[in-house]
């Protein structure tokens, strides 16, 4: 299945900003985090299709996965 993976802030360093990537059907977010070498404790937010998600969520073809470190402002 095709997943659009978006990385933000420091997670872009040495990786990428946005990529369309192929994964087997039913892949969980945690698998992608580990593939990208992003430790879970550094994660601030994960969003799938503009909704907050947890690492154990299963993805579906066409999903957009966005991964942010802990950031803030205001």
């Amino acid at each position: 299945m095709q997943i659009t993976v978006k990385l933000f802030a420091t997670f872009r360093e040495g990786r990428f900003s946005v990529e369309g990537r192929e994964y087997p059907e039913g892949t969980r977010i945690a698998v992608i985090l580990s593939e990208l070498n992003i430790p879970e404790q550094q994660i601030g937010m994960i969003m799938v299709n503009a909704r907050h998600a947890e690492p154990d969520q299963e993805l579906h073809d066409g999903d957009t996965l966005a991964i942010f470190p802990l950031v803030g402002g205001g």
């Binding site: 978006k6 420091t10 969003m47 503009a50 402002g73």
Partner: peptide, 20 residues
């Protein structure tokens, strides 16, 4: 947030967060 995110990107790091 206060030790790394804000000094690196400023408050404007939020554009992509809120957009997403």
């Amino acid at each position: 947030v206060s030790g790394e995110g804000l000094p690196t990107y400023g408050t404007n790091v939020l554009v992509n967060v809120l957009n997403e």
